[in-house]
Design a protein around this nucleic acid. Structure first.
Lengths: 231, 231, 231, 231
DNA sequence: GATGAATGAGGATTCATTCAT
DNA sequence: CATGAATGAATCCTCATTCAT
């Protein structure tokens, strides 16, 4: 339902074949974990292979037994994160008949995941600026999200529930951008102090309003959001 | 009316004092122009001082007569861009009585400026990922924009023209993020093929809808949203 | 018994950990030896890391595997020298009962060591002028020497063998300065043509006279001045 | 009577002809004064021509109107100092019949001058390590001093007033070294806290003792020095 | 598989000195 | 004489990647 920072297919991970022995598996896992720590601590550019290896308690050379290079290690780390973001721990079961509830559930899941992996989501932005392949990857993800959401929007429009004058594709893109950017500003940049709940409610309301969603059900939800001096 | 990529005060530019002689002024200008070209061509990280100097037709050392280093040169270039974005060539004169028209004018001005300086706006993102001081600067800009828009939104709410259940600050932040991120995705990443016009119309409609702006009441309001020197 | 150019603790040497493998040990040794040669040939300021590496037959970068920088390499070289000066090859066994003989033995040992390492002793002076940490180090050495000699002088005074009107600390400092500076002038600056023997005899006589040492009393004293592992 | 840090002929100063106009004279003086300040503040290596010029309130280029380069400016500054050290303000009139009094007067004059110009005397050491020509110059000064003192010592020996077994040249060199090095250690390195008086008395007594001077006059001066825990 | 030493390309920066105005 | 901008050589250091043990 939202945007551009974690979905899509990651590029070929782990060109060096996955380890066969159990020792190998352990070492690779140690390296991946170490990489995550070092990346989170130092950022992508400043992360050094030596440090990752040291952190993993193995020799520098061993790093290359499992990864082609820094990019690939990063890809591996991001693959984990993505896994997590694609399978939210709490699948919020929304009432499928209430579009707003669906939107809210999606936004909540997204923002919670984002917050949990904020460091790495920020890193993804950093890396995308630097590395062509990650840039492409992010673009694909953006596209995938946009298309999925565009589809949903189009359906709402056909059902007469959403503003028909909107370009579904663009609207999907824009609203996705809104949510993902808010997540970035709040959780990566640390801007403001709004709680995740308030964030979810605000973006959901904006999203619903923006699409001009007119609730099927007559009960008007006008109270989810309380005015706050948030952020 | 939108977001986070060009306002705010730039960091101390040109620590080496501005040149006094006309020759100096000329050289500095040549270096600044050269820097802009090289940055746009190579990006920030890959830009080399030698190249900038060569492009300006001066010796390497001369670069340091006018700039402390790459960062400062970049800041100088961005200051120019900012100047340009603060003074849009076409000041869209909007009907002050029509909030939507005002929003549209601001969005149009912003997107047009953004498109014109797309390369550098993208660079700003790159640099912000790398350089702490630029990051801070971007954050300040975000805040400034958000506050200005929040003010306008609050006024609309008071006048009963906008959804009162929205947190004005957060809404301002989110909508600004939406527009600036769209500009980034479209003009920097080159995503999609939407024309600027369609872009403007879409984000404006989304923005207006999101706030629940009810354009009706005939009573003339002169202040709901003021045309901003928006960038 | 003399002065200020080689004792005291050298600053933290070899921050990069000492190599574990034998290849590493070999390389480090080669670099240290090369550093010594280059320093002796070019002086500290003009010594270039590339030259040291080349001389050692390794790549430039390898230098940094073992040393933080030029200063540290120099410290390592000086540590060797110091080692050598602390363990004179010919331990001059002096008659402990004859204070003058003890002084002479110490002076001889010192001057011989100094002569053997003249180049580096001179370098130490050069570096002390340039590098704060080496300056501090030299000062500590001066202090250590002065205190040791002051102690010996005080004992002679108590035994009625030396001029009691002298401030032992100052006298120790001055006489040490005399010897070390003579060594510098003769062996580093190459002033004059006096043989080491003549030098030893002269400074010893001056030293003894200066303290007003009266060599007579037959009573055996075992401790007036102990032969020092003098440097 | 002492040593190696300020006498001798300085190398050709001010190759660019001395200024003729009064404006020129003023500028040159300003530059010389500025040079002294900057040298004292930053040391020789770290002193920058730009700074000297700025301090003098003139353009960089003007520096070269009066000096060939940094070395020459330094030489000019040192020439002033030398002037001062050669013509002590208080010429201590010593009883020429009392050798010890003569020695003491000379030492006092030297140490007082040294203390007053400590910064620059230290600089002279720094520069001598760096610049061949200053090194030669210092050597000449050492030689001149040594010869003068050797002459005096020889005379005392002939008069049966000093230890005849001493090599006059070497003794002169050594004692001079002792005094000048003490001055360096105390006033440049700031070692210890001995007053100039105590210093004078100690080195004088050491000097006299070292030469085995036997007072003509029967009155024994045994009290000039009081035992102190000095330095 | 693991080790860790060796490699070496590449760019920023300083500042004494010159010379056109 | 004064000005001050222009010059450009010259060295340090990092760190991803390889490969002999």
């Amino acid at each position: 339902m939202n945007s551009d920072s974690t979905n899509g297919t990651l590029p070929p991970v782990a060109r060096p074949p996955l380890p066969t022995t159990s020792r190998g598996t352990r070492t690779r896992a140690a390296l991946a974990a170490a990489a995550r720590q070092v990346f989170e601590r130092d950022g992508f550019l400043d992360a050094r292979i030596v440090d990752i290896a040291a952190q993993a308690g193995v020799a520098t050379g061993s790093f290359y037994t499992y990864f082609e290079g820094k990019e690939e290690a990063f890809a591996a780390v991001m693959a984990e994160v993505q896994e997590e973001m694609l399978h939210p721990r709490l699948v919020p079961l929304a009432d499928h008949d209430d579009p707003v509830a669906v939107i809210e559930a999606a936004n909540r899941a997204y923002l919670i995941s984002y917050r949990r992996n904020a460091k790495l989501m920020g890193l993804m932005e950093e890396v995308a600026q630097i590395d062509e392949s990650f840039r492409r990857q992010r673009l694909q993800r953006t596209r995938a999200f946009a298309m999925r959401n565009a589809h949903a929007i189009r359906r709402l429009q056909q059902d007469g529930l959403a503003d028909r004058s909107l370009d579904a594709q663009l609207a999907a893109l824009a609203l996705g951008a809104m949510v993902s950017r808010m997540a970035y500003v709040r959780f990566v940049q640390g801007y403001g102090s709004a709680s995740t709940d308030v964030l979810v409610q605000t973006v959901t309301r904006l999203w619903a309003n923006a699409l001009g969603i007119t609730p099927k059900k007559k009960e008007i939800r006008r109270d989810g959001l309380r005015a706050q001096r948030s952020l």
